[in-house]
Design a protein around this nucleic acid. Structure first.
Lengths: 343, 343
DNA sequence: CTGTTAGCGCATTCAG
DNA sequence: CTGAATGCGCTAACAG
């Protein structure tokens, strides 16, 4: 491996001079020496050792990104947004996936701390477990004590700059819109009981229903992914085919679950939206190719990832939490229904 | 930031001793001192500085991963596979996306070289441009001269261990299967002319057709993504509705293009598979939720990513290229057709 | 078993 | 403008 010293010797200059021309220092170097150094560097194929630079400078150029699952389009979009701003600033990204294990999230923050990344970005819902949340916060504090910056997209529970999706608000708006379509009896594929995002969306949805004087939705809990949505919807199938008291609309707390629900209904010959309406949340990119196209609450995922990283990188006083409002978008999977027969 | 020296002082031991207990060295340390050090470390919240470790040891624990687009399920799956084996080995992953720009791929290898990652993984098709390929290879050579390991998933064009998808073979097998269903006139959404993967799949498909004595397929080039598939298919629509000489089956050289094609046909009232059969390639995860379910050639994407990283990490003599055979899987998007009326 | 001492590759004072 | 010297945080021989 060729080092700066090799280059300096090869060019017949001092180490310091070589360093100055090769690293964009503020100091000026004479044209002739500069040329010599640059020549030697390219000839030898010199590549700076960023680890050494980071050590000497006390500041690196890598940022850490922690997501639950890269294969989930939701996180892929957020990661993509964050990586674009990272790239635009000459930063390199270290990515870790927790596969929805909070312990791994904590472990990863520790790892990123050891890597001395200049900022870490935590994407994804917090868990309701106060114990793990406390431990995660402690780990983050340790990291921040060392000068690290942290930002998240999700709930503002970590004392960090946070891009907060309007989960409750969006779900409430969705509920009102759906009610406006004539729906009265709802089911909610509610995800895991311990996931704050899922919880907030359920609460927002149920709260809006209550505000409208409508009956409480039927809740079915399960995993936060596609198969979780499938299973939950399958368990619902009976309630939907029953002519009386049947739910006419099901809200899955995220799109991938809604996709699973669509599949479950399809497999059982239940037509969407004729037999039941279905709505999701997030507006992941793959949605537009579904049949029927899924109604949902749109979140600007890439922007959120990008914005979160900006928050981490440009420490603004008093700009802790930024709320992002979701926009209800109605597509083919939800339809207007006639007034219900009185119970 | 608390350093090893702080810990050593706090524990009343030497730097070396502290290092030995905290970093899993082979050397043994007495129980009492060990306890003191561990206590001091946790009390102070010590986190090793991996950059310094890497410098001192001359070996890091980060690997680099370069993909074209993280949002594309194809790359997400490969990345996921690679990241799983990385994690199992205690390695951390630096991810870069090229957004299909070969220049960025070269630049990223340079960056990863500067980071002194212990291995780099290049995923995605090569371009047919010999000039960029040469420059990329030079950059890789420089990296390897420094002791770096490289592996790819794609074509074996970089003098590196490579997991090679059986593109031509899989496409050929697909062509034969489709012909067996009675199809005679095909169209191929061929992707960019300069992308080797696209090229190989087209060639394999067309070659098999020729071998069967069937007419050459109609080729439509375009971008390698969903919208490219949409546009290409839209341009085809006339040829399909024409009763005579019309193609009965279209092969998109990858699944995301096929998804776009499905959308284009749907928007035009062309039914799949009644009016035209459609097949893709890759078997990305999102496929199972499409209607109609898409026929394709299955590639074990995660395994390929995982395997490639293993190749990079466990340098085996003479195991340069590993071919992965794709498996044709027929679903609802392709149907059997009656014998064609003679021209 | 434990402590001392050199570097790893580079940025940066500080002199000249 | 240029060079010599110091230290970043840690590991790995060497001595005790």
């Amino acid at each position: 491996m060729v080092t700066l010293e090799d280059v300096a010797r090869h060019a017949g200059v001092s180490l310091a001079t070589a360093s100055r021309v090769l690293n964009g220092s503020t100091r000026q170097v004479g044209a002739s020496l500069r040329a010599k150094v640059e020549l030697a560097a390219t000839q030898l194929g010199y590549r700076p050792n960023v680890a050494a630079q980071a050590l000497a400078r006390g500041a690196g150029n890598v940022i850490g990104l922690v997501v639950h699952d890269l294969v989930d389009p939701y996180f892929a979009a957020i990661a993509d947004g964050a990586m674009r701003v990272a790239e635009s600033r000459g930063l390199v990204v270290m990515v870790g996936t927790t596969h929805r294990d909070p312990e791994r999230e904590i472990a990863y923050v520790s790892t990123l701390n050891a890597q001395r990344v200049c900022a870490v970005l935590l994407a994804g819902s917090r868990t309701a477990d106060p114990h793990v949340t406390r431990r995660l916060r402690e780990e983050l504090d340790r990291y921040r004590e060392g000068g690290g910056r942290v930002a998240c997209v999700g709930q503002d529970l970590l004392d960090a700059d946070t891009v907060v999706p309007g989960n409750a608000e969006g779900a409430a708006e969705l509920a009102r819109t759906l009610a406006g379509l004539g729906h009265r009896r709802f089911a909610v594929l509610a995800g895991p009981a311990g996931l704050v995002t899922a919880r907030d969306r359920v609460a927002g949805f149920a709260g809006a229903l209550a505000g409208l004087g409508l009956p409480a939705p039927r809740l079915v809990h399960g995993p936060f992914d596609r198969d979780g949505g499938y299973t939950a919807a399958a368990g619902l199938a009976d309630g939907i085919t029953a002519p009386d008291e049947g739910v006419t609309c099901v809200f899955a707390v995220n799109d991938v679950m809604a996709v699973g629900a669509l599949a479950a209904f399809r497999d059982r010959g239940i037509r969407v939206p004729q037999d039941v309406s279905v709505a999701g949340f997030d507006d992941i990119a793959t949605l537009r190719d579904l049949v029927p196209a899924l109604s949902t609450v749109r979140l600007p995922l890439q922007d959120m990832g990008a914005r979160a990283l900006e928050l981490a990188l440009d420490p603004v006083e008093e700009a802790r939490a930024e709320l992002v409002t979701g926009e209800v978008v109605l597509r083919e999977s939800t339809r207007r229904v006639g007034p219900q027969a009185p119970g």
